[in-house]
Design a protein around this nucleic acid. Structure first.
Length: 775
DNA sequence: GCGCAGCCCATTTTT
DNA sequence: TGGGCTGCGC
């Protein structure tokens, strides 16, 4: 970003108990220092506080600056209290950055911005206040993707659907996509429901939602979706937020999905002061529900909206911008803006053909060493790939040469196996009704409690309509589970009881350490000689560090699901290696863009599944990639690439041909490719383009759809835990029964659901009534 | 209940 | 080619 020097501490905000809310904003002559150094368009965007405003902010045009200045402007002008501004971002990182930068402008007042956060954290906050309106308790837990899939798997199995043919992952993605569109189970169309298991998709969604309520839990999609339900069914609640939020600000609007759009639209009905900032050319998350259409349609949705285009770029040279602009101009579906800069000259964007991926890595490594030897930093360099598997070649090369690098993105800290296990322990001691947590760790470390035992616990829990832990307590009193499993379960229950007694006594960290120690969890990894276990132990240590910053376990767990992410370690001088997606929002003086080949980039899969829309999104990704560069952008393509183990010769990406020649220069490594050869390839490229559309009709998705159309069946009833009151048994003393394992017998006595049965082929045993049937 | 060998399937990822 | 999952044998 430019002109950071104009950021100076702002004067203290007007201190008064009666801020005039109707102060005419445009006449507020509060010429705070924050307005200095803004270009005319930026200033325009900052002071247009009233009504609907769309700020189309191209790459590197000072978007964050506009957002933060706008906040400062509203606050310093006394137009609203900090708590009356709703500002939403997509990532925690963006929220944190905004908070920091606004703090730099207005000082302490920033702490009052209680409604600055991600969509999800703001929605969770609202949902906790009104949880009971959607049958939740305000203490609801937020499930991560892993829990979500496990739960869905259970539901699928409970419906006797083959979970190999119809995978829980696929069902989860459908549910997510429905939630992204704001669809509750009753609103899912037949056609949509038929995407899964011959039409059972809708039913599974419904059962899954019911299960979530029983578990007092939400998945990520629910946070927003429940908000929608609350706002639409309870206008009084919505009205309260209308009164509360005087101004709404949205970052990265092009990434919003339908649900988020509806949520914003409802909230904006209050004052109508909705300002969204985004760039349609950088919409790269369509596959995850983002609707570019939201930003394309903004002026229609909010008639009279003011549109401000930020096109002056402060980041890149004219050749980089020229190349990127020329490329993106090929897209049809865009609002259209052209970046410009007064940074004249600079180097042409290079396009280089190489033999294969190792050659590509070798060549790029050489360039990086060159750069370093010229006194520049590794920190200034990024290698941006389309798919993470392309990273391997670079990592190998960097390691061989001893070049320091860091991978950005990849598996997140809190999604690691050991961290999830540890969380499950904490969750279960905090809430004994957390069945998912119980299931996860009841046999981790191995205690001899196998699948069959767990299944029995589940059956018992279902038949008694209680939690798994509760069912366990009952079941160990009987002979349903015996031997090692039974004693292990008993011991586990005792452990849990002991740990719970320390809640509020020990500090969260100390409790957590004790639990992981006494459960044998830490020992399990110490004993494991796998190469990764050392790292896992270190992660657990890091986890303790994170927990130590909280006073209560609840507080910690609340944050962990939505807000917390681990700060990256001390900054060293390292090359950044990441996907193009991960690079959005970042900038580097020197950017390498390897793998520009048909099928790799644009990705064949994207083309197959989404046709022209997919291609346009890939092109936006290319645009994002090029515009990350400040000084140099270097594109590569290989003549041969290994795909799934086998070598394939490849064709240069069509995107290479779309770069305006005046901003590009071809550098061939050895003459396998030169620019004219590449041009000749254009014929073949367009042919493959046509064939990709042909292929789309034979794609798996299309096939699956056709198949599901053919074999439609009637939706069947449900069989999950229904909120039925826990009652005694239906069995009578003296009655003859059958038990799967023990055979026939006669009931001697009954104690609630616990039966004492004299079995004919076995001795007298205590069993649960859910396990026997009348004969 | 646990460990290993063969098998299948492969973007992008935030909350 | 390689990682993750399943099914089989102990």
């Amino acid at each position: 970003m430019s002109n950071p020097d104009s950021y100076r501490p702002a004067p203290p905000p007007p201190q008064s108990g009666s801020i005039s809310l109707q102060a005419m904003p445009t006449r507020t002559p509060q010429t705070g220092t924050y307005l200095e150094g803004l270009n005319p368009e930026q200033k325009d965007a900052v002071i247009a506080t009233e009504g609907a405003v769309l700020v189309l902010a191209g790459a590197g045009t000072g978007k964050t600056r506009v957002l933060t200045c706008r906040l400062a402007h509203i606050l310093e002008g006394g137009m609203a209290y900090p708590s009356q501004i709703l500002s939403v971002t997509f990532t925690n990182k963006a929220a944190r950055e905004m908070r920091e930068r606004v703090g730099g402008l207005i000082g302490q007042t920033v702490e009052g911005l209680t409604w600055l956060g991600t969509f999800h954290s703001v929605a969770a906050k609202i949902l906790r206040i009104h949880a009971e309106l959607v049958d939740l308790k305000s203490s609801f837990t937020i499930l991560d993707t892993d829990d979500q899939i496990r739960l869905i798997k259970q539901v699928i199995r409970s419906q006797d659907i083959d979970d190999k043919r119809w995978t829980p992952r696929y069902m989860a993605s459908l549910i997510d996509s429905w939630k992204n569109k704001g669809l509750t189970p009753d609103k899912v169309t037949h056609k949509e429901a038929f995407k899964f298991a011959e039409g059972k998709g809708g039913e599974i969604y419904k059962i899954y939602q019911d299960r979530l309520i029983v578990l007092n839990a939400c998945d990520f999609g629910d946070l927003l979706l429940h908000n929608l339900t609350i706002f639409t069914k309870h206008p009084d609640v919505l009205a309260k937020y209308h009164r509360k939020f005087r101004y709404i600000l949205v970052d990265e609007y092009q990434d919003t999905n339908v649900c988020q759009y509806l949520w914003l639209r409802l909230l904006a009905q209050g004052t109508g002061n909705l300002c969204v900032v985004g760039d349609d050319d950088q919409s790269i998350y369509g596959w995850r529900g983002a609707e570019v259409d939201n930003i394309l349609r903004f002026e229609k949705d909010f008639p009279g909206a003011k549109v401000v285009k930020l096109e002056r770029n402060y980041r890149s040279t004219e050749h980089i911008l020229g190349a990127a602009s020329g490329l993106i101009a090929t897209n049809e579906d865009r609002l259209g803006k052209t970046l410009w800069t007064d940074l004249e000259g600079g180097e042409l964007v290079t396009v280089t053909g190489v033999w294969d991926a190792p050659a590509e890595a070798r060549m790029i490594s050489n360039e990086i060493e060159n750069w370093k030897s010229q006194g520049r930093l590794y920190d200034e360099v990024a290698v941006l790939v389309r798919a993470s598997r392309q990273m391997r070649a670079f990592e190998e090369r960097f390691i061989a040469l001893g070049l320091p690098y860091r991978v950005i993105g990849g598996p997140r800290f809190f999604e690691r196996l050991e961290i999830r296990d540890a969380h499950a322990y904490l969750r279960i001691i905090l809430s004994e009704t957390d069945d998912l947590a119980f299931e996860r760790i009841v046999n981790t470390p191995k205690r001899g409690i196998g699948q069959t035992s767990v299944q029995k616990l589940q059956m018992a829990a279902r038949s008694m309509n209680v939690s798994l832990e509760h069912a366990t307590r009952e079941l160990v009193k009987t002979d349903e589970i015996r031997g090692k499993a039974r004693s292990a379960l008993k011991a586990f229950l005792l452990d849990a009881k002991r740990w719970r007694a320390d809640i509020g006594v020990l500090k969260p960290v100390d409790l957590a350490e004790r639990v992981l120690d006494e459960s044998g969890y830490t020992q399990m990894w110490r004993d494991n000689k796998d190469a990764k276990s050392q790292g896992r132990l270190e992660n657990l240590k890091e986890l303790m560090q994170a927990i130590s910053e909280f006073d209560t376990l609840e507080g910690y767990l609340e944050h962990v699901s939505l807000v917390l992410d681990v700060e990256s370690g001390p900054q060293e001088d390292e090359i950044s290696l990441m996907t193009l997606h991960a690079a959005k929002g970042l900038e580097f003086p020197l950017v390498f863009l390897p793998g520009w080949e048909e099928g790799v980039f644009p990705s064949q899969k994207s083309l197959d599944e989404n046709g022209l829309a997919g291609l346009e999104e890939e092109r936006r990704l290319a645009y994002v990639g090029i515009t990350r560069a400040r000084e140099k952008a270097k594109i590569y393509f290989a003549a041969n690439r290994q795909i799934y183990g086998s070598w394939q010769s490849s064709i240069p990406s069509r995107f290479i041909d779309e770069l305006p020649p005046q901003h590009v220069t071809a550098e061939a490594e050895t003459g396998y490719y030169d620019h004219s050869y590449n041009r000749g390839m254009a014929e073949e490229v367009s042919e493959s383009f046509v064939s990709s559309f042909e292929r789309s009709r034979t794609s798996p998705g299309w096939q699956r759809y056709k198949q599901s159309q053919k074999s439609a069946t009637v939706i069947t009833g449900t069989a999950t835990r229904k909120p039925v009151k826990n009652k005694g048994t239906n069995f009578k003393v003296g009655e003859r029964i059958f038990h799967q394992k023990f055979g026939y017998g006669t009931i001697k006595s009954a104690d609630g659901a616990k039966l004492t049965v004299a079995f004919e082929k076995s001795s007298e045993k205590k069993v649960l009534d859910g396990f026997v049937e009348k004969v």
